[in-house]
Amino acid sequence: MSDYNFAYLDEQTKRMIRRAILKALAIPGYQVPFASREMPMPYGWGTGGVQLTAACLTPEDRLKVIDQGADDTTNAVSIRKFFQRTAGVAVTEATREATLIQTRHRIPETPLTEDQVLVYQVPIPEPLRFLEPRETETRKMHELEEYGLMHVKLYEDIARHGQIATSYAYPVKVEGRYVMDPSPIPKFDNPKLSGCPAIQLFGAGREQRIYALPPHTQVVSLDFDDHPFVASKPDHDCDLCGASDSYLDEVITDDRGGRMFVCSDTDFCMGRVRAGHAGRLAGQSKGAAA
């Protein structure tokens, strides 16, 4: 422990990041530039999220890390271990018990509370980047609220696929002002962004941007009057816990076309299984899921 300052980052860096967080909370949805540090992991592995987590952690915190909803994937495990080693904080896989949750690509199914902070890892923070490569121009567009371009993207989707095919990183407008990329969460999770009691922080390490949603912020997914936003998910129930209202991953089980649908949120799924809920394949796969 004596080899590292608490939570790896030096205090000056934490102060710089905390200032950026405060500014981001004060201007919901606005991308605040920050001096992203080199972290002992490659870009794309959550360096933005890790810096936010490091700047927010206190010794009393209980940390949960998920990747695509799961606590046991490589990325989640290595980030959790990183903070166990550099901050010595308690960790958990239970959403309800965590005070700080770092996530990649999901919002937990269990509703969050005012006592929690959700930190998102963000690869590309700029929602306008798809059509406008110039940073000077996108900044100007945010400044002047010129957001017609976002609908051009959605228009292209409908023209090409007959519907809005964007299924993750679905753009949102925050409090009627800034258009924001919610990170690559499935659009199924978009409604959870709005009115959330927890603090939501977004960090992009390579792109050096931090943005935030303070508690109870109104977040609206962009759409057309005749093609309204739909928070879609696979039309199945979870094969393990039988949940009909959670986001599902499709798992190929053999090379003869066998497949199953399971909750992407492993903590949520196991909690339901423990409470006695059962899905279509509950008996056969119990061992695998536990």
């Binding site: 010129e146 957001y147 017609g148 371009l149 609908h151 051009v152 228009y155 292209e156 409908i158 023209a159 759409d223 057309f224 009057d225 005749d226 093609h227």
Partner: peptide
């Protein structure tokens, strides 16, 4: 989309 952009930029929201 090229033709529609100015419409969307001025608030058109009906595909």
């Amino acid at each position: 989309a090229n033709v529609g952009e100015r419409l969307m930029a001025t608030g058109a929201r009906h595909y």
